[in-house]
Amino acid sequence: MHTDIITISQLCFQYHNEETGLDIPVLQGIDLTVKKGEFLAVLGHNGSGKSTLAKHLNAILTPTSGKVLVEGIDTADEKRLYDIRQRVGMVFQNPDNQMVANIVEEDVAFAPENLGVPRDEIRKRVDAALESVGMTKFKQHAPHMLSGGQKQRIAIAGVLAMQPDILVLDEPTAMLDPSGRKEIMQAIKRLNREQGMTVVLITHYMDEAVQADRVVVIDHGTIRMEGTPQAVFPKVKELKGLGLDTPQATELIYLLNQKGANLNPEILDSETCVAELLRNIEINR
């Protein structure tokens, strides 16, 4: 967890609006490093610039000014484009719009085929990728017969087959139902814990960001908060001001403290919340 795998310095990005003739700034001076093996959540409301930031991590977009380095490679270096894309696997919101083939294993094979990987090696990679998202059983299925969560797991397997060092997921659960969301979060955490995959999760769901090692909150194209979930979420008022939620447990403790209680504010889940409350409530008074 010590080496920096992505270094972003003074990243600015703007796009030109054809109708008004104005340049619209989206990212305004982002400084951020992603460490090898960490699970980083980028939290922000719609239009905060978080998806634009994600697209800079594998050179779909390149900075208007500033620099993005992936394992030391400048994303603006067009000659290294595919080196970057192969290192940074990208998963998007809508699983339907990421799948190319109408058989699961053919779809997972798409990236290694593009990279010119030899046939035996493709086979190995496809099997390994499907295994690590728990979809081996479905390798001969047609994608449209699967549930949303299953489709999104196939999409993840599709980028894992490139053997990337970093997995970037841009709101991967926004279109899924609760069980689908759970499946994806479990798959991501497993990849991070068991295979040491560096994960960058772009989301507006606080309950997903809570599960990360580190959270970055972005608003209007700038980083507004950064730290462990335990450090970020107790700032309930600040987060609400940015149009974001906090876990109900954290909010409850925060509100009780506002009323003069003296509880540990760094609480995110129900178990620790209950323990903290019990310690402070005198039942047999």
């Binding site: 894309r85 696997g89 990208m90 998007f92 719009n97 085929e113």
Partner: peptide, 23 residues
């Protein structure tokens, strides 16, 4: 959908038929 698919394909290093291998 076409637009999103094109981006997703680029992200998976698609660059036409040259030097492509097959599963």
């Amino acid at each position: 959908r076409a637009d999103e698919l094109a981006t997703a394909m680029e992200c998976r290093c698609y660059r036409g038929g040259e030097n492509r291998t097959r599963l």
